[in-house]
């Protein structure tokens, strides 16, 4: 059976919406405040992810690209969880 998670998705997209969280969950509170977005991918579909490497304010419709980043560390002896975030495309 084919799971949705096996589907290849585009690493490029645009911001569908975003918010700046002031109150974060425990494992993320060291990073707060941070920007969370729903990204509309160029090949279709949307994902919920943090925005990273921001130099200034963002807007709905801004282009972003996927990067691998550390999401959280579960304490000194816990897991280090990696995943995806999105950043403004690097200038050529």
């Amino acid at each position: 059976m084919k799971s949705g998670i096996d589907t290849k998705i585009s690493p490029h997209g645009t911001i569908y919406s975003f918010t700046r969280l002031q109150e974060a969950p425990e494992a993320y509170s060291a990073q707060a405040p941070y920007t969370l977005a729903i990204v509309e991918l160029d090949d279709g579909g949307r994902v919920t992810a943090q925005l990273t490497d921001l130099d200034g304010p963002v807007q709905i419709g801004d282009p972003v690209e996927m990067v691998t980043r550390k999401l959280r560390t579960d304490g000194a002896r816990g897991m280090i969880v990696y995943g995806y975030k999105f950043r403004p495309p690097l200038k050529q």
Binding site: S17, T19, P25, L36, T48, L71, G83
Partner: peptide, 23 residues
Amino acid sequence: DMEGINGATPTAMAGMVMRRYMD
């Protein structure tokens, strides 16, 4: 697996819907 792991909260989800609506 898809929202919580990325640091989402119920309030943040509401914030994103509200911003999109206003836009």
